[in-house]
Design a protein around this nucleic acid. Structure first.
Lengths: 201, 201, 201, 201
DNA sequence: CATGAATGAGCGTTCATTCAT
DNA sequence: AATGAATGAACGCTCATTCAT
């Protein structure tokens, strides 16, 4: 009985597990060596798997890149997902969550991946598409929350600036790893309040 | 006499010209294809030179990357150089120059190079060093201008946030090329004023 | 009793069935993709069997090729077996059977296999040996029938020419699939009659 | 002066020489190991060249195969080219040249290549096209010579049978290398005369 | 100084074969 | 007996670098 159960439930999840193992191993390699620099053999070793076996789960290196990109921006989106449920108190929540947002963006793993993904998007239309689609969706959501009664166009721009700032801090942190993040957060809070609450008293 | 001198020393300037031609050709290729993706043959063609001849001017592709990076951040620095001479009116000048700064940062050529350089810096210590050294110097200069009578630490952080914002906008423009730059500039002006003039009445 | 015997010996016949299933599946794949081009996974799928299980019946791909070649030339030989029983009326039978011989040789499946086998024989001594042994035996048999009272050497040569012609037609049919086979048969009949009956009034 | 002449005239022919060297080296490898079996490294070694350098002259292994096939059938065609100029004495010339035709077809190098090319044509449409185009042209030429005043359809068929016979002998010679070629030639002469001169007294 | 032919190490990928179950 | 996941050597091809001229 146990055996049967094992067999019946193991196959599909195991495949998914292996794919995920490969995807996270690939992400580590991509951070370490870049998309082009990372070797299939390196990814295989990182996932404790033979080189050839990778091709049971993915068709090509490019597919691994695409799926890893998709996975990571979905994860990123989920952070913004929380804001969505905050209704008209989004700005408060944004401000409250700023520390987490900045820390996450400044995480070298994340910022390296973001950098790599964005650079890749400049030459690889598939990656560009994934990034742009996810980006549009994310902004649409936030937009809905923030949007009531305001000048929509301007709000969109303020949102862009907010995202630029958060991502920009991640990149700054690469070039200047001594960046004092808590200090950054407290000043960014001011900026965000000014960005979105200016009209309010 | 002059003529003779010219002839005798002609080699050096010509060499410099060739090197520069190569460097700008390389930059174009790097923007188009990335550091790894750009081939020596492509760079040679772009510089209208034979592949092999590149090695009369540079030891390796890596050296080209390093020198190109150095050259381009020096160029970037020169923009900040102007601020230096503005004395205590730096913020005014910064605000006045914002349009130029944002446009320059949002220029696909520049943002692509910045992206590529920063990504490379994560893996290549030499590039990281070039970037960090230049960055430190640049900040030190601005710091001098802005710094008198203020809380130095906080000012440094505000400066970081300013740079992060400008660079972040460049990257946003890659993922969302429909970004309304003039609108962005006008809002960023507010942000910058708030960042640096808040204390002043 | 019978039942028990059956059960006890069932393994062998079943094994033989599986082997044959595999062999015919392999032949189809070899025709489609060539010996080198056919993949073990393709053969397994064609035989509705898992890839790994093939190795319960055969040691290697090469062994499959060898056994398939042996099997197919034995089948071919059986066609000539009929002639053997015709005694001194072999030529009549040959002429009568020409249509079948030509059609069989021109069958894309057969001609493809023959091509593949012969090509393989040029590099693989084992295959060459199988082909040559079978060929020698086949000729020896026909030789016996045709041979009485004639110049043995010349007869052997005429036989070679006959076989060359039949096989050659098969190959022609690959390059020129519009070949009018009935017309070919009627002319080949003339040729065969001239080949073997010239001396007879 | 010599230098200049050398430079001006050397480039193009040298490239052609290298290509031809590569092509004949490839042909030898293909005969030895088959199209799929021959390795680029093997071809490179046979041509006394580095593996990578092959790709200065050819885009891919497939292109080498295609060009080699084209070259070899053109060479084959040139044999038939002579017949063309014989006017209404083609059959005499064909009979006279039979020895050469048979010897050439029975040359292991040639028959191996023919085998390989035909087998490849079954799966590779490009090769099939090259073979069929050349074949059609060759037949058209012979057809013109032989065709006057005869039943065209039947003549075409007789031609096919002739070619099948010659090619078939080549293949026979692989399986039975003891084939007595002079004896074969003398009997084939009869066959050819019967094929094409039957109507004539 | 200048060319581009030449090299060869190393890449992504394939597939016959083996292994754990 | 049967599966298909797993292995890894070997392939075709690329490209930074070197060399002969």
């Amino acid at each position: 009985m146990e055996r049967v159960t094992k067999i019946m439930t193991a196959a599909a999840p195991q495949t998914k597990d292996q794919r995920n193992r490969l995807l996270t191993a690939a992400a580590r390699c991509f951070v370490k060596s870049g998309f082009r620099g990372a070797r299939m053999a390196q990814i295989a070793a990182e996932a404790q798997m033979s080189t050839g076996h990778i091709y049971h789960y993915f068709d090509s290196k490019e597919q691994i890149i695409a799926e890893m990109v998709r996975g990571h921006i979905e994860e990123k989106e989920s952070i913004f997902g929380r804001l969505e449920r905050a209704g008209d108190q989004v700005v408060d929540l944004m401000v409250d969550n700023l520390e987490e947002s900045v820390d996450s963006s400044a995480n070298p793993f994340w910022s390296a991946l973001t950098l790599e993904m964005t650079a890749e998007a400049m030459r690889n239309p598939k990656i560009a598409d994934i990034l742009r689609t996810a980006d549009a969706e994310m902004k649409a959501r936030l937009f809905t929350c923030l949007g009531e009664g305001s000048d929509q166009e301007e709000l969109a721009t303020r949102l862009e600036i907010f995202i630029a700032l958060i991502q920009g801090i991640g990149i700054r942190n690469i070039i200047n790893p001594k960046l004092d993040l808590p200090a950054v957060v407290s000043i960014v809070k001011e900026v965000v309040e000014n960005l979105f609450r200016r009209s309010k008293p």
